[in-house]
């Protein structure tokens, strides 16, 4: 994964270096601009068992700000926002790798440094008894759930960095 390019980022953005579960690092730029979730749409994507994007719909492309060719083959954590606690993703992976459905509220980072909130549900794709990948569907969250999640994630992040 390449570092975010300031050329693509709109407005003032704060630089953060994210460290992923495998030790890989990426420099990201995040502004305070929130992009509203599109009315009536579902954001759909599929990954392989390593979280590499194999398929996504137009709503996913539009909301991420990337081209489809920039998304397919990339890890899903391309969209990780620095305000999201690592524990949320650890819980997601532990749940779906156990063959269960995970759902939660997620702040995603766009290519231009802005963000959007989603209510995400992830299920394992089980074929012939084996998990072969994951399907993630995001829908519009309520503002009350977004506000509660944002507050919770501030606390969780504080504990992670303490």
């Amino acid at each position: 994964m390449n570092d975010m390019d300031p050329v693509h980022v709109a407005g003032n953005a704060v630089q953060t270096t994210l460290t992923y579960f495998d030790g890989q690092q990426r420099s990201v730029l995040a502004s305070t601009t929130e992009v509203p979730y599109p009315e009536g749409k579902l954001i759909v994507s599929r990954t392989d068992t390593r979280g590499i994007i194999t398929q996504c719909n137009q709503a996913f492309i539009d909301m991420s700000g990337y081209q489809e060719s920039e998304l397919i083959g990339q890890p899903h954590c391309l969209l990780r926002h620095p305000d999201m606690p690592k524990a949320a993703y650890a819980d997601l992976w532990a749940t779906v790798n156990a063959g269960k459905k995970w759902d939660g509220y997620v702040k995603n980072l766009r290519k231009d440094g802005s963000h959007y909130w989603v209510h995400a549900v992830v299920v394992p794709n089980v074929r012939n008894g084996q998990i072969v990948g994951f399907t993630s569907v995001r829908r519009k969250p309520s503002r009350s759930k977004v506000d509660a999640s944002a507050a919770l994630y501030v606390d969780m992040k504080a504990k992670e960095t303490a």
Partner: peptide, 11 residues
Amino acid sequence: VEFMIDLMNTL
């Protein structure tokens, strides 16, 4: 159809 089942499961 398996994808449809996965989708419905998320919803």
